[in-house]
Nucleic acid binder design. Structure first.
Lengths: 202, 202, 202, 202
DNA sequence: AATGAATGAGCCTTCATTCAT
DNA sequence: AATGAATGAAGGCTCATTCAT
């Protein structure tokens, strides 16, 4: 959610460039000059707009998260049933725009960056909480009880992350349909397992 | 001051130091000087022993992978049943020595590094293949058919990675018992789901 | 502090400084920092302008050669007779500006550098060819036949280089008049020798 | 004239290696390690024998000069006539062993080194004086008067150096017969020029 | 708004040199 | 005699950042 200031276009160009360069190199160890040049401007201007490399990175991360959030929000519109909503989460997570090699790489980079950066951790946490709340909400409509819903949500979130990270390193590029399918199966198994328990308890 | 025949010891000290420094900072962007000093020597000596920063990093990664491999191998000794073997995989993956915050961070760093480094990717691939083959082997004893075994293996490997990565960012430090439990549940659900399918097919 | 549009001036300052430092030390083994500081700037700026030490050296060599070329060209203006032209070559080669101890030292350094550097060899070759063509042209007006003209040109070029190198090591500094005189004598002897042969052949 | 100490063989190996490495790279900017390894020993041993890099270089230069001196001395044996003696100088200067690309390169390197190194300059000076005295002696037997003999000697020495340096950069390797021929012609022209003067004075 | 000029700090790496063994 | 261990110093180069224009 970059603040819309006087020069939104320039900032967007820089963020796009940062995304590109970081995603391509798979590391934050890229120079501001490289990013700025990719955006067609001098590095001095990038500093003028963002104040420092850290800010460029943070804003780029924020942008990526906001895109995912928007993607999810739009896909949830009108989906009321829990199964539909879980499916929407998968589709947003592995949407065509997010699940490209470069974007995945950027995600990973930011993910790891959150380990050592307070601000990055904060950003990631917001998204993480929102995703979890979404999952819990849906599972609760299925399981009724909170604890199993929470457990399933945590499990599903882990699965999404795991599939994400593993597909990032795929030689032939990531396959979003396969990714979704794995997660879908996991959700189904999760639900089946819990239902059978409930079934057995009768 | 020069100790004689110190090469292997010095190398190990350096690898340990690298693990420490990389794990603590959560990035490969650490100087050789920092690593060497942590190991109680000058950076020149580190270069003497490893030839370059790249080699230090690669060897450190190799060490981490070899430890995991050894850990798994020792836990598999005498385990014949597939359930026992799957459990062994979990225990190795989330063993106390591996599942410490700093070690996890190092893992993540290397994981992401593999995205852009040929040699790191190669190393990771070896481990990845071995893990998968282990999982497939176990699942096949349960499911008989290869395709579902492969699917379950891939799903389980993803789950392990996902749990790993998510726990890395936990504020209160990772909880290996919880981690294992999530994966165990996933395996159980996986098995249950497949068995019921087979049951239905009769 | 930043001056505007300073690039050409800065580059010249650096080249002058390089000439000075290299000429004074008699080796290419001088640090960029030393050169840059001599030119009154930080080494980082030198890298900014030239890209690397190699470029600084190559450009400095190119400058020295271009100066010699210009010097020769200007001295050749209006000189039509071969004797006048040969004399112009000597005067250019041992001009006051070129034949100072530091400049000679720089020449030697570059000369030797050409042994191991492709680009330096290329530069030197251009100058060498031009000098030879000049000499051959003049001698041919005297000898008529090409082979003796070529031989005399090669001999004269060698003599110029030899005098150059020997005077470089003179304790009391080089003496350009003596240098020119030696070469002049050589040219005269060369011409006399060839003429007498022709005379004898009648 | 390296002093024959306790370990002459080792020292010779090192000097040979230094000659090889310096001649091949065309610069003194080679590491002691490289030289020592080429000689099949550790760099520490090289330091043990020579005390420092400077000494290695100086001794290597001394060796080269002593070889030339020996070569000249042996060729002068029995040569009494001045023409024979001048020819012997040429043959020694461009002897097959001296006039190889690597050796020439080493010569040049040392030559330039003498510009900035006192000890190298001293060594070169000794050889230089000896050569000059040889030439003067011969020329004097031809010209009788000292001044023209001195002049001719200086001129010849310059020519030898010039031919040397120019042949060093030859693409197809140096050609010693051509080199000798150029110098021989120069000597002849020198003598002819002076004789005709004397002839005219009658 | 935009950029070239400018630099201090830091990094990787090499090397001459010393020292115990 | 011989060498690996060990390091301080230095060098080339990059980069984030600032500043004047």
């Amino acid at each position: 959610m970059p603040r819309i200031g006087a020069e939104p276009a320039r900032r967007r160009e820089l963020i796009n460039a940062a995304l590109h360069v970081i995603g391509k190199s798979g590391t934050l160890d890229v120079s501001v000059k490289e990013i700025a040049n990719k955006a067609g401007m001098s590095s001095a201007l990038a500093f003028h707009y963002f104040g420092g490399k850290n800010e460029i990175i943070t804003e780029t991360m924020r942008f990526l998260l906001s895109e995912l959030t928007a993607s999810l929000r739009s896909r949830l519109v009108g989906k009321v049933g829990p199964h539909q909503r879980l499916e929407a989460v998968l589709e947003a997570s592995f949407s065509a725009s997010q699940f490209k090699r470069k974007t995945i790489a950027a995600w990973l980079v930011f993910y790891v960056h959150a380990y050592s950066s307070k601000s990055a951790a904060r950003l990631l946490n917001i998204y993480s909480k929102r995703l979890e709340s979404n999952l819990v909400h849906s599972y609760r409509q299925i399981f009724a009880d909170l604890p199993p819903a929470k457990k399933a949500a945590e499990s599903t979130a882990s699965m999404i992350d795991g599939v994400f990270i593993r597909h990032a390193l795929r030689k032939n590029g990531p396959d979003r349909f396969e990714a979704i399918e794995i997660c879908r199966s996991h959700i189904a198994a999760q639900i089946a397992a819990n239902s059978s328990i409930r079934g057995n308890s009768h």
